[in-house]
């Protein structure tokens, strides 16, 4: 059940997208999101959707996988859409008490839902095609200038890679404890809300206990290998910008330019 959560999961592969430098992909994501927020009309959104589909196709990520990533967040999407539905200006199509729905409101709602979904899917494409290790490596390199400002970039990157590393472990652990409690008759998916909340106690307590135990063990293991902060580290795998990275960044510049141009088109 929990194994089906694809949030932050990496699908190994050897496509163009997989081979790109993680820094390129991170910059791409920032650029893509910027362009997404520039989109203002049908053309803009069509372009962003098209780019996403192309990305997914190039990275050989199935639409089903991409959409299943949306599932846990569907509530936010719907909630935002509904809120936006009532904030349109112009002539009312339907009115009741303080609620009014306008054509503008519907347009906003659809666009806002689409924007969030594209945002999520775009970010998922990054994590689907980039291993967590590469991702933190890329992030660390991109944030390197901040070291001059005494921001502990390496330590943050280490924390992030440890956190990412332990997500699957914790999910597995949760799954195990859940099964063990279910075997004793616990049920997590039936009953009233308060009952369900109470049913989480037998799950959360062992999970916390084991998370702390793991953290302790890891800290000891790291200390045994003389890990300390602030050391100068070299990398086993050096990141190198290839031609495909430069091309990708050029495409990104084009995408941003197109987004700005399309913004002027209206409707």
């Amino acid at each position: 059940m929990l194994k089906d959560i694809t949030l932050g999961q990496y699908f190994p592969g050897d496509t163009l997208i997989h081979r790109l430098d993680p820094r390129t992909k991170l910059i791409w994501l920032v650029g893509y999101i910027t362009a997404l927020f520039l989109a203002h009309n049908v053309w803009g959104y069509a372009l962003m959707l098209g780019v996403l589909v192309l990305e997914a196709a190039l990275g050989r990520i199935r639409p089903k996988t991409l959409l299943s990533g949306l599932k846990p967040l569907i509530f936010i999407v719907i909630f935002t859409a509904i809120i936006n539905l009532f904030y349109g200006s112009g002539e009312a199509l339907w009115e009741w008490w303080i609620f009014r729905i306008t054509a503008d409101g519907i347009r906003r709602a659809v666009f806002m839902a689409l924007r969030i979904m594209l945002l999520i899917c775009g970010s998922f494409l990054l994590t689907y095609t980039t291993s967590p290790l590469q991702l933190t490596d890329g992030l660390e390199r991109l944030l390197e200038p901040l070291k001059k400002l005494r921001v502990p970039v390496s330590e943050l990157a280490m924390m992030m890679s440890i956190a990412l590393r332990f997500i699957p472990t914790l999910i597995e652990e949760t799954d195990k404890i859940m099964s063990a409690q279910k075997a004793r008759g616990a049920s997590f998916d039936t009953g009233k809300l308060t009952e369900r909340a109470r049913a989480l106690v037998p799950l959360l307590i062992p999970l916390f206990v084991s998370a702390f135990r793991r953290a302790d063990e890891l800290a000891t293991a790291m200390e045994c290998r003389c890990y300390h902060t602030g050391g100068q580290r070299t990398r086993m795998k050096q990141l190198v910008f290839a031609r495909r990275d430069i091309l990708t960044l050029l495409v990104l510049a084009g995408l941003l330019a197109a987004a700005i141009v399309l913004r002027g088109l209206g409707t």
């Binding site: 652990e173 195990k176 404890i177 099964s179 063990a180 409690q181 075997a183 106690v201 037998p202 307590i205 062992p206 206990v209 084991s210």
Partner: peptide
């Protein structure tokens, strides 16, 4: 009745 491996981790 099913007793998992390392069942002590389920105590709460």
């Amino acid at each position: 009745g099913l007793v998992f491996q390392y069942p002590e981790y389920q105590l709460f």
